[in-house]
């Protein structure tokens, strides 16, 4: 029961974001690119619930239309590291030995650098853009997943049901993917959901710096950056996408916590 309420709130927020991303026209009162020169930097009002920017574009509509890019960032900036890291963690956790030692040192090197600095450095080398951002995040982010997975796999490897599988003559592939992986994947999945919140923040940070989504693709971080010049006079321009980021982050975090309780294995 304890898990149900946060999970429900989290899932509701994520569902809202998903629908916004799928059919933004249902919610957005205006075309996000429609200029309204009669209402430049207009304060929130019944016509523009969250105000307008310097070209008179409706901030609510812009924020809703941006959800698609941010959701994409959440999925891809989490998915790459999740897949790569889990596979590496599964293999080094199972085989150990020199591969594990090499992995350990490599992981140490990667985590020595601050995450964002390393990502920015890689994006700077590859050039700005979403694809390059995903590559950069995958290069850095896999370490967390690999470590989580490795630790779990080592615990599961010692369990007798794995020994039973070997006594039954099961292949290593079968034991790894049918027995060890399902029992080791829970912390990784839970982290992945929370990681999507971090991914959105990261995408927003890079968008704010101009390294992430490139115009005309609108993205919440870029929207906040757009509003920074008017922050004292028209704070709603930055605050509206800011609130969207907070809600999305909250949604992923709550869903992650709820999922953790839901996946708790009974022994």
């Amino acid at each position: 029961m304890r898990a149900k309420i946060p999970l429900a709130i989290g899932m509701a927020l994520l569902l809202l974001m998903l629908v916004c991303a799928a059919v933004p026209s249902w919610f957005a009162p205006y075309d996000p690119l429609e200029f309204d020169f009669a209402a430049l930097l207009a304060a929130p009002s019944p016509e523009h619930l969250f105000g307008t920017d310097q070209f008179g574009r409706d901030m609510l509509s812009r924020t809703i239309y941006s959800a698609r890019i941010d959701l994409q960032i959440a999925v891809f900036a989490m998915g790459g590291p999740l897949l790569i890291g889990s596979l590496i963690g599964l293999l080094v956790g199972w085989y150990g030995g020199w591969a594990d030692a090499v992995f350990g040192r490599l992981a140490d090197v990667v985590v020595t650098f601050p995450f964002l600095v390393l990502v920015i450095a890689i994006v700077a080398i590859l050039g700005p853009g979403l694809i390059n951002m995903y590559i950069a995040v995958a290069c850095v982010g896999w370490v967390v997943y690999a470590r989580l997975m490795r630790g779990e796999v080592r615990v599961q490897k010692a369990a007798d049901y794995v020994a039973a599988g070997r006594v039954l003559g099961y292949s290593t592939g079968r034991i790894l993917f049918r027995h060890v992986l399902p029992n080791a994947v829970r912390p990784v999945l839970v982290y992945a959901v929370t990681d999507m919140a971090l991914a959105i923040l990261l995408g927003s940070s890079l968008g704010y710096l101009g390294l992430g989504a490139q115009p005309p693709e609108a993205e919440w971080g870029a929207l906040i950056a757009d509003g920074r010049n008017f922050f004292t006079t028209a704070p709603w321009v930055s605050l509206t996408p800011g609130v969207a980021i907070v809600l999305a982050g909250l949604g992923f975090s709550l869903a992650g916590d709820g999922l953790a309780a839901l996946l708790d294995v009974k022994r």
Binding site: A159, D160, Y161, A163, A164, V167, L168, G169, Y170, R174, R178, H179, P182, N183, V265, K266, R267
Partner: peptide, 28 residues
């Protein structure tokens, strides 16, 4: 074949009893 000491650790907690048994039957 082997029967293990700890009946709590020797069964895969994520598989039903039926699929645990069926797996052995299928593999061999």
């Amino acid at each position: 074949q082997m029967v293990f000491q700890d009946p709590y650790a020797s069964l895969n907690p994520r598989m039903t009893v039926g699929s645990t048994l069926a797996e052995a039957l299928r593999v061999h």
